[in-house]
Design a protein around this nucleic acid. Structure first.
Lengths: 144, 144
DNA sequence: ACAGTATCGTCAGAGAGGCTGACCATCGTC
DNA sequence: GACGATGGTCAGCCTCTCTGACGATACTGT
């Protein structure tokens, strides 16, 4: 462990750093009731709404857990559920006003952090990093 | 979210994939009582022993949580605590027989996965990826 | 030497996150 | 229309993680 870290662990540091920065910024912006787990679910809600099952699969938790977290997000006013017009069983989790506002903050911080990283690594290296990670996703992300 | 993922999220996929693979392999090799949280602590135990506080800081949990997890690792026979000869307050968490065996399995799987990734990306890209991530660590890892 | 402070670790209590199993409603298909 | 598959919920349980308080040892300055 103290030797040279493997690629997976090396990937972990930036991820954790970004997540921490985003969550801290959200808290500072008044969205201080968001937890890490809620954020991981919320981050996967699409503009046109997303099914609970899909959220669960992408976040790699059971649908029960996802439902539990969406309940909280709903109670806190970030999202709401609407019936899926194409499937009577399903409901779509959609962002509300507050959710959209939080997403805007998150997006801004993500861009900030990425700019810092680019400043540290240089334009070209960052581009290559993104390219490599995107290709690596093909074999590490079961979701597309 | 469904647009182009940010660098942090792109980093997440390989990390999660590796962690899952290692944990699955450990379970298959008979170390099926290891949990993710325990693994994250154990992964930070050095050959010559590591203090609880240090484990907690690196894993970014409180020392109470780290202590809780080390208790379990100790009960399961992976690690044991020895007094720190240089500090009467401290104790060092060290690997035992079983812990070392599990580490060996983990190392093997890490190498396997990295080989797969290298096969997918190519030697040169992988080398550049590691280089970029290592430099990125300088600004994203509070621990060296 | 000793008073004060910092650090290492533990105990106790509480809450959040996550799982398995069981279940109902609806969809899609034969 | 019967039946397996899918979307989601309810209930119960366990693990993880935190805050707060505390004892013990180390370090620092006078």
């Amino acid at each position: 462990m103290t030797a040279e870290p493997n690629l997976g662990l090396l990937c972990f540091f930036p991820y954790r750093a970004l997540e921490g920065r985003v969550l801290a910024a959200l808290a500072e912006a008044g969205f201080d009731d968001l937890t890490v787990a809620q954020g991981r679910i919320a981050a996967r809600v699409g503009e046109s709404g997303t099914r609970l099952t899909e959220l669960a699969e992408q976040a790699q938790v059971t649908k029960q857990t996802a439902g539990f977290l969406v309940d909280q997000l709903e109670r806190a006013g970030y999202v709401h559920r609407v019936p899926d017009p194409t499937d009577g069983r399903a409901r779509l989790v959609c962002f509300g006003e507050r959710g959209r506002a939080a997403v805007a903050v998150a997006r801004r911080v993500e861009a900030e952090v990425e700019a810092e990283w680019t400043a540290h690594l240089g334009e070209e290296t960052t581009r290559a990093l993104r390219e490599a990670l995107t290709r690596l996703r093909e074999v590490t992300d079961p979701w597309r």
